[in-house]
């Protein structure tokens, strides 16, 4: 009887240990192997930028100004300390993998507006050691500035240079901070959040709303009837460094 009980206990113990092991193994595997389908709610927010329409407004920075004002993005004296959420880059620098020599000068010789791509497979979220940056079920790659430890691993992992670090206190770089949005503190990483606060309130991102050329559109990429999908059907579109497998959610119509 005693022996029976002992062997039962032993077996039960081993069984439990195996269960626990299997459980954590699947958890681990799940953490490593995130699949494409795992985009909760079926929603995937994205943006379409019409490079031709944008290029027509030569020198326009309305989207940049709108974003900076809404989100208290500081302007700092040292260019090495600059914080950028959305800005303009030379086309060959934004799209280094596009052979742009002598091709469609109306686009490739104009600056392209760049921002966080809100990748479907974001390398920044993969490397973050505290889950201070992660992908929301609707596809927005979010940041939690309360949790970021400032290790800057995400900045090394982002192939688009879309992340900025607060090397110094950003407050002195803000003449009149917007009272409705927090500033950041020194020592954390920040980036575009696709205006999660506006999107949750049913409004389009500030840059989209501010564009005088209506060159930016925002919506659900997984809904075939959405405006962004309609635009993507109408013309050929690029994504930045598509070969890296990050699956950016920002498309550029050419």
């Amino acid at each position: 009887m005693g022996d029976d009980r002992r062997s039962f206990l032993r077996r039960a113990g081993w069984g439990l240990a195996c269960l626990a092991g299997a459980g954590s193994a699947t958890e681990l595997a799940g953490a490593f192997l995130r699949t494409e389908e795992e985009t909760g709610g079926g929603k995937r927010l994205g943006m379409v930028v019409d490079l031709v329409a944008c290029a027509r407004e030569e020198g326009c920075t309305k989207c940049v100004e709108a974003c900076n004002a809404v989100h208290n993005v500081p302007s700092l004296r040292d260019p090495g300390h600059a914080v950028k959420w959305i800005w303009k880059e030379r086309f060959p620098d934004a799209f280094p993998d596009q052979e742009a020599e002598n091709v469609l000068e109306t686009v490739t010789e104009k600056p392209a507006v760049v921002l966080c791509n809100h990748c479907d497979n974001p390398p920044c979220a993969r490397v973050c050691p505290t889950e201070a940056t992660w992908k929301r079920p609707d596809g927005i790659v979010m940041m939690d500035w309360h949790r970021c430890i400032g290790c800057r691993y995400c900045m090394a992992a982002c192939p688009y240079g879309s992340r900025s670090f607060n090397w110094v206190d950003p407050r002195p770089g803000l003449a009149r901070p917007s009272p409705d949005y927090p500033t950041r503190t020194k020592g954390v990483v920040e980036k575009c959040t696709f205006c999660d606060e506006r999107v949750d309130a049913g409004e389009p991102p500030a840059c989209v709303a501010a564009c005088p050329a209506r060159a930016m559109a925002f919506g659900d990429l997984s809904d075939p009837k959405s405006e962004v999908r309609r635009l993507l059907r109408s013309r050929f579109a690029l994504r930045r460094k598509a070969a890296l497998g990050t699956r950016p959610s920002v498309y550029y119509l050419v």
Partner: peptide
């Protein structure tokens, strides 16, 4: 050296509070 490189050194315990096995920094720790 890792510690002096942190932007928010007072929050460094977050690595333990929110363990993230998908990050190599977790395994390095």
């Amino acid at each position: 050296f890792i510690f002096v490189d942190m932007g928010q050194p007072t929050r460094v315990v977050n690595i333990l509070l929110y363990p993230s096995p998908h990050s190599l920094m977790f395994w390095d720790m």
